[in-house]
Computed example of a mutant assay.
Amino acid sequence: MSDWVSLCVVISLLFSLLMVAVYFLYSGLLSDIIVLTGSPPVKKITFAYKFKQGPYKNCGQLFKETNSIGPKLTCIGVFYDDPKKVPGPQCRYAVGSILSEGEDKADEELLKRYETSGFNVFSFPEVTHVVTTSFPHRTFFSILLSVRRVYPRMELYIKKRRLCAHPFLELYRDGQIQFMAPLARQGDFYVPEVRHVERRLSEEEELHSDTDVSGADSNSEYSSGSGVLLSDSRETSLGASSVHSSVSPLEQGDRDYRGRSSGGASSKEPDWEQAGGQQDERKESLHGDSEQKNLVVPTQQWWGVVGGEE
């Protein structure tokens, strides 16, 4: 009798291990990751978002919130800082949902719902070249796997080709997590709250440092955290968005993990709060220590070195 019980236990254990292995494989454990330089996965977009500064681990709640308002919309996360070089409380990100793409109009009812919930509205331009790849988004574990697998590949690709690519965007739709980092017009991918943070940091540094010794320009908007010099002008005006929203600085967050199923096609909603706890691992997997040379737009070291593209 005891032998029969032992055999049942062994069979159950083997079956459980088999199910776990199948789950991991289905989640994308062995999926090919092909990093390319090419056209972006989206055109010009208008999106509702909330901006936060602090640990990326907290962004899962934002994905959950934005998905609850527009469950059929594509969720987007934009990550501005390298958590290996920027303290967690200072890391910046924006999370929201895409309201319209290209020349399409945003749904007015959805727009009002987002604005009522405290979201702002902004537009990103369409660019011709980005560093991009994708990863299957089939289960919650797909999000964790993308942390471990995608960002090291993107880092290596950017470093080898000495590219200037930032910030990093993630889009969740059609059962895929689409990753992209623009190679041009990077300043246009920084939401207005980032500029507010830059100005505040600049003012604080001006109060606590001797500008004559440092030689720093007190009016500079150079971010000591992200290493990005932001211009006051946008080729696509900040006010030219097809949808308006008053921009009010929102509380901000850092780097562990978020996740969110793309709007329309997904039948399962991932646990965004659990996903938030993995953001640090994913970002730390990406960031390298390459030095910068001849940058047209100064960027963080982990974004690589410019290779002739702005």
Rank of each mutant, 00 (worst) to 15 (best):
G28C: 03
L295K: 03
L295A: 11
I45Q: 05
N120E: 06
C8Q: 12
V243Q: 12
S233W: 08
S134C: 02
G264C: 12
P192D: 02
K85P: 00
R138I: 04
Y49C: 03
Q186E: 09
S68T: 11
D271H: 00
V35F: 01
V22E: 08
E203S: 10
Y93W: 13
G277Y: 06
Y190C: 04
F135N: 01
S100H: 02
V306C: 15
S31K: 07
Q252F: 14
E115D: 05
R148S: 07
S68W: 05
E235W: 15
H287E: 11
S248I: 15
G77S: 08
P71C: 06
P167T: 07
D82L: 03
G253K: 12
L13E: 04
V147A: 14
R153F: 10
E103R: 08
S224T: 10
R113S: 07
S16K: 01
L7V: 07
L18M: 10
L36W: 09
D3K: 13
R260D: 02
S2M: 09
F119I: 03
P87D: 01
N219M: 13
S220C: 05
G215K: 06
V131L: 01
G276I: 02
G259I: 05
L14A: 09
S241T: 07
T132F: 11
E309M: 02
E221W: 12
L18S: 12
G60H: 01
T139Q: 06
S214A: 02
P270V: 08
D210R: 08
E193F: 05
S285C: 07
S209A: 06
S2H: 00
S231H: 12
P182E: 08
Y80K: 04
V95Q: 07
E126P: 02
E193M: 04
R161S: 06
L25C: 05
S68M: 09
S224C: 04
L99P: 01
K57W: 12
G277P: 00
G60W: 00
P298F: 00
Y114K: 05
G60A: 03
A240L: 12
L169P: 01
